[in-house]
Write a protein that binds this DNA or RNA. Structure first.
Length: 272
DNA sequence: AGCGGAACCTGTCGGC
DNA sequence: TGCCGACAGGTTCCGC
């Protein structure tokens, strides 16, 4: 599911509801995606810790705990964090319950079980985070960076945008939306792009991601904020999922093609 | 270096 | 109604 704007939305929700709370107990319902794999060890290490900060890097959520410990979460396709003050019955998609204080429960819910929860001693130790490319909404997204990452490659620009080691956080929906906004065909290769096109791409990456964060992300099927409300950006999508519908700019039917076994949507007339 | 394909799981939807 | 295939926002591993 979630790409950078959705993860950012979740992080903001968690910052309001779980920071400075103490984890009083942990219950693991299904442990195939947790590290350490042993539920007992996972539970034991977290119990008693206080959540100091919740932040994001790429599509990872980072819980910094005290005493010194980090919980890295990746939602993959269907992962969710839900915070509630009610005491629900365990649902079959609930993977882990984190009891916070005496009043609140933070639920990690994941229908498809692709999501991961990993305990690491410190962020420096988290290899996955070290491998990530730059944050697209930071000052590090420069024309030079895009030139270095994209302009020497014969891979398609669609694939390059999905490559988390270059720019971190863009997924399949926003890759299509960004390329439409920049008027670049997903079939072009990195080394075919002109400097002007790279400039447009940089602008579109930031514009689309910021707009999606403003709308609390996209809820195509099951993305939900921490309070279980949907995001609204799906109402602003221009090409994703619009196969055969008229392009909002020129009325040409939007095309769907498969690249890297994943759908790309684009306007064959506007995007060259 | 970089590609395609499969795998990890479960659910939904559309066609017949 | 029921079965079957296609598809789903992500990542990783394997073989070429």
């Amino acid at each position: 599911m979630p790409e950078l704007p959705e993860v950012e939305t979740v992080v903001r929700g968690l910052q309001k509801s779980v920071v400075s709370q103490q984890i009083t107990s942990v219950q693991v319902f299904r442990n195939n995606a947790i590290t350490p794999l042993s539920s007992e060890l996972f539970t034991q290490r977290l119990t008693g810790c206080t959540i100091e900060t919740v932040t994001r890097r790429g599509k990872y959520l980072i819980f910094q705990l005290k005493p010194q410990l980090c919980l890295l979460a990746h939602l993959r396709m269907t992962g969710k964090f839900i915070v509630t003050s009610l005491l629900p019955q365990p649902h079959k998609h609930h993977r882990v319950w984190f009891q916070l204080g005496h009043q609140q429960l933070m639920i990690f819910d994941d229908m498809r079980c692709f999501g991961t929860l990993e305990l690491v001693e410190s962020l420096e130790q988290a290899k996955k985070l070290q491998q990530l490319g730059i944050e697209p909404l930071s000052a590090k997204l420069t024309l030079n960076h895009l030139k270095n990452c994209f302009n020497k490659s014969s891979t398609t620009i669609k694939s390059l945008l999905l490559d988390q080691t270059k720019v971190a956080g863009i997924g399949n929906i926003y890759a299509s939306e960004i390329l439409f906004d920049a008027k670049i065909s997903p079939l072009r290769t990195g080394n075919q792009l002109s400097i002007q096109e790279l400039k447009n791409l940089k602008k579109s990456i930031q514009k689309i991601l910021k707009a999606a964060i403003d709308k609390n992300g996209t809820s195509i099927s099951d993305f939900r904020k921490v309070d279980e409300k949907t995001g609204e950006f799906q109402n602003f999508l221009k090409v994703y999922g619009k196969n055969e519908l008229a392009c909002s700019h020129c009325s040409t039917p939007i095309q769907r093609i498969i690249q890297q076994q994943r759908s790309s949507f684009f306007c064959p007339s506007c995007q060259q």
